[in-house]
Amino acid sequence: MFDWKWDFTWEILPRLVYATGNTLIAAGAGYVIAVVLGLMLALAQRTPSRALTFTVREFVEFIRSTPLILQIFFVFYVGPQFGVRLSPWMSGMIAIGLHYACYLSEVYRGGIESVPKGQWEAAIALNMTTAQKYRRVIIPQAIPPALAGMGNYLVGIFKDTPMLSVIGVAELIHTANAIGSENYRFLEPYTMVGIIFLAISLPAAGLIRLFEGYVRRKLGL
């Protein structure tokens, strides 16, 4: 019943490994964008400017309430109408980075709000500037409780990279599709993609937990 062909599996493996590299790059670059932009979105919601807070909050809600694939299409297909012409790679990473930045901003927000009020007051008593308060006191304490959520979204962004196949980014699914249509065989490429995703996601989740423990110890928390 199973018609698994090992020689075909070995033959396509190099292409899949190459595509894995692309997937990791897309996920990694998207995540870096999300981590940095997410923090900025979280901080922007804490400024005294009500207009800025409101705008950013609505933007975050909008992104979180619409599908990622729509945002990918928007950046790639609608962008050019506004003169923003980006490659599939760039569009994909921006869309996915932006999408996850909004989720991460909520994770950061939770982390920042978990810092006790006394820490802010101690920072005021030392006459710190707002920037110093965040940089030296609040963010270092907001990150450890946020790490679990940040790790979940790292695995999440990795699993969402197949969405980029719709605009032609040669990540794993895109490559598996191509192999399948060229050879009229889908069992091996799709199975291998599943195994590759599993082989990366599972250890990643474990590593994130280890890292979380390490950071907590390092910060003496």
Binding site: Q119, A122, A125, N127, L219
Partner: peptide, 30 residues
């Protein structure tokens, strides 16, 4: 505010810094 210092009921030391780092933080940064 630089003229005033305060100690709190619940200490409010910075948990991610050592005792020495807590004391050095203001003088270095501020």
């Amino acid at each position: 505010r630089a003229d005033i210092g305060m100690c709190f009921q619940h200490f409010n030391l910075f948990p991610h810094m050592t005792a020495l780092e807590n004391c050095m933080e203001g003088p270095v940064q501020v």
